[in-house]
Amino acid sequence: MILVNEKIKAKEVALTGLNGEDLGIVTTSEALALAKPQKADLVCTSLLSSPPPCKLVAKGTARQEAEKEKKERRTSDDPVKTKEFRLSVHIEEHDYDAKLNQMRKLLESGKAVQPVVRIQGKEGEAARKLLERLAAYLSAYGRKETGFQISGKQATVKFLPV
């Protein structure tokens, strides 16, 4: 949260000018009086020190920078959602096509998909072939994040959107 102008409650602030020059420690009312003729906002950069460091910035830019920073933080924090699809080695062709279309649509909309093939007995090679077939089709819509992972009861691969 950014404190601007009258929202700064400290009695004194360490002030920095519009061009980065150090104006020393002044009262908040003096800093606001300096900001008005220059058509600038008084922005508090940190609340952790005493007196709090504040700077003069061009009117309106503080809010724009804060919104831009908030938006960047939100986009970088959100991991890509992954949808898991469960298949079996003996999947019918119609069911395979339906799952393939669902995966394609999700990749196009920016979500990751992870097909998981259940394995029973000696179906490991058949599961790998099924995943390779999926990967060949989905390569136009997404890229593999992981290689084919075949463990005891399942085989899987993860696709990220292009």
Rank of each mutant, 00 (worst) to 15 (best):
E6C: 02
Q114V: 05
L34M: 15
V116W: 01
K59I: 15
L34G: 00
V162I: 14
K70G: 02
S29E: 14
G24Y: 12
D97V: 08
F85T: 06
K153E: 15
D78Q: 13
G17M: 09
K99R: 13
E93Q: 12
A140S: 14
Y96P: 00
L56T: 03
A112D: 08
N5I: 00
R133M: 07
G17A: 08
E132C: 01
G17D: 07
S151Y: 10
A135I: 06
S88F: 06
R118P: 00
K105E: 12
I2Q: 05
K70H: 09
K11G: 00
N5T: 03
G17Y: 11
T75I: 09
A58M: 12
E30W: 07
K105G: 08
K99Y: 15
T146L: 07
E93I: 04
V89K: 09
K81F: 07
E125I: 06
D97N: 11
L87V: 11
E108H: 06
K158R: 15
I150T: 13
A58C: 08
L34D: 02
S46Y: 10
R128T: 04
G147D: 11
S46T: 06
L32P: 02
K11L: 07
K144Q: 12
P51Q: 05
Q64S: 11
V116S: 04
Y96K: 08
K158A: 02
A98L: 11
K81Q: 10
C54L: 05
V113H: 00
E12I: 00
S46I: 06
S49V: 04
T61P: 02
R143D: 10
K83P: 00
K105S: 13
G20E: 08
K83E: 13
A66Y: 05
A10F: 00
L134W: 03
R63I: 14
F159G: 00
Y96G: 04
N19F: 11
Y137D: 13
E72L: 09
F85M: 06
V80M: 09
K153Y: 10
K39V: 15
A126N: 10
Y141D: 09
L106Y: 02
L56R: 01
K158L: 15
E132L: 12
D41F: 03
K122N: 12
S139N: 11
Y141M: 07
S139Q: 15
E30C: 01
G20F: 09
I150Q: 05
K153D: 13
A40N: 06
L15E: 03
E84W: 03
A62R: 02
K105F: 04
E72I: 04
K99T: 04
L134P: 01
D77L: 15
A10L: 02
L32K: 06
E92A: 14
S88P: 02
S76Y: 10
V43H: 01
E145V: 13
K71R: 15
D22G: 01
L23E: 05
L47W: 10
G152D: 14
A35S: 05
R74Y: 11
K59A: 10
